[in-house]
Amino acid sequence: MILYLHFGDPQPDPAYRRLLDMVGEFTPVAQALPPDAALADVSGSTRYFDRDAAGLAALIRMRAAALHGLDVTVGIGPNPLLARLAAHRGEPGAIRTVPDDPEAITRFLAGLPASALPGVGPATARTLASYGLRTADRIAATPLLTLQRILGVATGRELRDRAAGVDPSRVTAGAPPRTVDAEHRFGQDESDAARRRAALTHLTEQLGARLRDERQTCRVLTLTVQYADRTGSASITRSRTLPEATAHTPRLRATAHALHGALGLQRARVRSLALRAGDLGDAASASRQLTFGPDDDRARRIEAAADRARARFGAGAVRPASTAGMR
């Protein structure tokens, strides 16, 4: 059985590695999903610890609470997809199990919103809803050719498998993939949304330049906003998977602004903004969506020229006017 462990808020890299080491005490087959989750295959550990998967999950939760003060949410399932869905279906801080039984899997997926399935973003969810396909069981019951006409051949097949709880992927052991982070702290609590957007523009300029300098791309962008509330301070984190792996600053900037806008923090007093580029990959092996206009190619040529200027004259040599004075 597979455990999906959600640690709550995104964890700083040292703390995250300690959590992963703790999971490694129960199974050597643990896969990092930074900054706040991990997968663990405990199929070979149940006999050694003389406990079933739920028992091992309870031990991990107790250890995390005692050593790190975290209330870990655990989903258990016969594959990574079902374990992840189980963890997120309900209140945090619990253990939820999907048995390895076809009828139990069907009952679990009945009524699950289409948007809960990996890869179904707002646009895809709206498209599916226009055809009356709002839940996983409705999608799973739809003829494959119909889904492929709606979404395309590969996407339609993949979504139908996920809606039926089919996931051929395996837990891959290894160290957590490296991430690239950038943070901006305001001199005072900032309530001006335009200034917050300018700070996000500055952060995406930093992230994009670093990724390109290291010949990397990212597939996931995470925004963490720390803001003032009546108790002192609080934070909120949102992530978005990009349509394709990229290091192109305009794509990162658009995604960061969309994440910020979706939070609805118009009147909030924000103390800091942090962006994390995750799911990094080698830029040489990244695919790129073809375009039919010159604008994208022109933007990339300008970006390359700006990178050369920064390499020669320093990081602040080229920057958007709205970010002047920011560090």
Rank of each mutant, 00 (worst) to 15 (best):
261 G>F: 07
259 L>R: 00
167 D>W: 05
256 A>Y: 00
9 D>L: 14
243 P>N: 13
275 L>P: 02
313 F>I: 08
132 G>S: 08
325 G>Y: 06
31 Q>P: 00
155 T>D: 15
3 L>E: 00
172 T>S: 14
148 Q>M: 12
6 H>K: 10
279 D>N: 13
33 L>T: 00
168 P>I: 05
184 H>F: 13
308 R>L: 01
195 R>S: 10
85 L>H: 00
164 A>L: 06
246 T>H: 03
196 R>Q: 14
210 R>L: 08
166 V>R: 09
231 T>M: 14
238 R>A: 13
18 R>G: 11
324 A>C: 10
113 P>V: 03
77 G>M: 04
197 R>Q: 15
183 E>D: 13
303 E>A: 15
253 R>T: 12
91 E>V: 12
187 G>N: 12
266 Q>C: 07
97 T>D: 01
33 L>K: 01
261 G>P: 02
1 M>S: 10
61 R>K: 08
129 A>F: 05
239 S>G: 09
23 V>R: 02
130 S>R: 13
90 G>R: 07
240 R>E: 14
217 T>Q: 08
270 V>E: 04
299 A>H: 04
41 D>R: 06
38 A>L: 12
60 I>F: 08
105 I>K: 07
84 R>S: 03
292 F>G: 09
155 T>K: 14
229 D>Y: 09
84 R>G: 07
81 L>V: 02
272 S>P: 04
63 R>F: 10
36 D>W: 01
302 I>W: 13
185 R>P: 03
8 G>L: 02
130 S>L: 11
266 Q>A: 15
196 R>M: 09
209 A>V: 05
81 L>F: 02
167 D>E: 10
68 H>R: 09
234 A>K: 08
25 E>G: 15
306 A>Q: 07
166 V>A: 12
278 G>F: 07
57 A>P: 02
150 I>F: 00
236 I>F: 13
299 A>I: 03
210 R>S: 02
72 V>M: 00
151 L>S: 06
15 A>V: 14
216 Q>W: 01
154 A>Y: 11
140 A>Q: 02
138 R>T: 12
193 A>Q: 12
61 R>H: 04
59 L>Q: 11
134 R>H: 10
70 L>A: 00
187 G>E: 14
313 F>A: 05
159 L>I: 10
37 A>H: 04
309 A>D: 06
173 A>V: 05
169 S>G: 13
253 R>G: 05
326 M>K: 05
124 T>F: 00
216 Q>S: 09
44 G>N: 12
309 A>R: 12
264 G>E: 09
190 E>N: 03
121 G>W: 06
90 G>F: 08
33 L>V: 15
274 A>D: 04
176 P>V: 07
322 S>D: 15
146 T>D: 14
221 L>Q: 05
250 P>W: 03
229 D>W: 07
264 G>F: 07
12 P>F: 02
45 S>Q: 09
104 A>N: 07
275 L>G: 08
191 S>D: 13
153 V>C: 12
267 R>C: 11
41 D>I: 01
114 A>V: 02
301 R>K: 14
267 R>M: 11
203 L>I: 06
237 T>F: 02
174 G>S: 12
178 R>D: 15
292 F>I: 14
250 P>S: 05
